[in-house]
Design a protein around this nucleic acid. Structure first.
Lengths: 192, 192
DNA sequence: GACCCGATGCTAGCACCGCTAGACAAGCGA
DNA sequence: TCGCTTGTCTAGCGGTGCTAGCATCGGGTC
């Protein structure tokens, strides 16, 4: 039996290696550079090996996206729990979100810009995605305002953060005033 | 001289045909389906003809994006000028923006999701893009609030709209509450 | 009106992409 | 040690964006 266990362990290791390498190439040179040939060469296996782990490139992107969602949820929770008072919590949350997006652009792309074949806002949405939304909801519901549906408010706040993240990253917004925009967002959207 | 003029006219016509066809295929089947072969076949010319008009596929996307920016600017101005009072103007602007994005998803993708090789937030930003931002600024500066830089406020408002547009389109936000989110956005962000 | 020549669009092909069929070898259980 | 399963590789398919070089068409000149 231990032979089989060893094989499963090695297989899991290789799967992690594939994801880590895909992420590495994507952060270095963008997702366009993550070709199955290049990825296979970097992990020192042939192309078809990738397809014994994932259905195709899309599923690799999706797997990286799930990793990212988990990381982002953790980052948001850590930042919010280290802050005192509703205002500080919301500001910390917003900064943590934008900071994660800025520091991990390729992962953020996998989550929201590219097609990873993931379901959203549905029953079969993967747990990490639901949990990332939950991390926002936990810290935003206290500033949603009276009589406002917390989920709806969280969606709006999230959309604004997402807009700031993507437009900034694409060079559509001058980066030097990012902090002012974040503060204005918190000031206006949150009911403090 | 008239011969040369005729040729130039025919050439301009064909360029318009290329863009209209690219846009058509993109709206029908997405930008991935806009291959140079398919596009060439639809306009009944061979592939290399495309390259006598545009440097490559990226430049075609960029040209469609500029068309879209002009259309969106017009839509926003029309909606805002038909409304009475600051609040109605801002609401009309937001609805017009989101409506344009929803009705022309491929064009919106060309503008913001894909790489059209365009410069943004810089001196050499193409006029239509600057003008589209100006259309937002014109109607938003009156609700930016005292002592708030109108440009910065417009950037934030735009980012929020962009976030709503992209997340809704990607199925990340349930579409049934779109109107409530829009109203909440206007209520919270605009100083009325 | 005939001819030359340049502009213009075509055929064919490059290197690369995601993905897969089928050959082959390694390593297990008997 | 043998047979077989399991897993990996080589090779290749149809597609992509893009381009070199040829052929042809048509305007300008004599």
């Amino acid at each position: 039996m231990s032979v089989q266990e060893r094989k499963e362990r090695e297989r899991a290791d290789r799967e992690r290696l594939i994801l880590a390498t895909a992420r590495e190439i994507a952060e270095e040179q963008g997702w366009d550079a993550v070709t199955t040939r290049r990825l296979a060469e970097r992990i020192e296996y042939s192309q078809p090996v990738l397809y014994s782990h994932f259905r195709g490139k899309r599923e690799i992107i999706g797997a990286v996206a799930l990793e990212g969602a988990a990381e982002m949820a953790a980052a948001v929770r850590a930042a919010a729990s280290a802050a005192d008072g509703p205002r500080a919590r919301v500001t910390a949350l917003a900064r943590a979100y934008l900071d994660y997006a800025a520091r991990n652009p390729a992962v953020y792309d996998a989550m929201f810009q590219l097609d990873g074949g993931l379901a959203f806002a549905q029953e079969d949405t993967p747990a990490p995605l639901k949990d990332a939304f939950a991390a926002l909801l936990e810290n935003l519901q206290e500033v949603a305002g009276d009589g406002v549906h917390p989920g709806l408010f969280t969606e709006l706040f999230w959309a604004s953060l997402h807009g700031l993240a993507t437009l900034t990253r694409a060079g559509r917004l001058p980066p030097e005033y990012a902090e002012q925009r974040t503060e204005m967002l918190v000031d206006r959207l949150a009911v403090l």
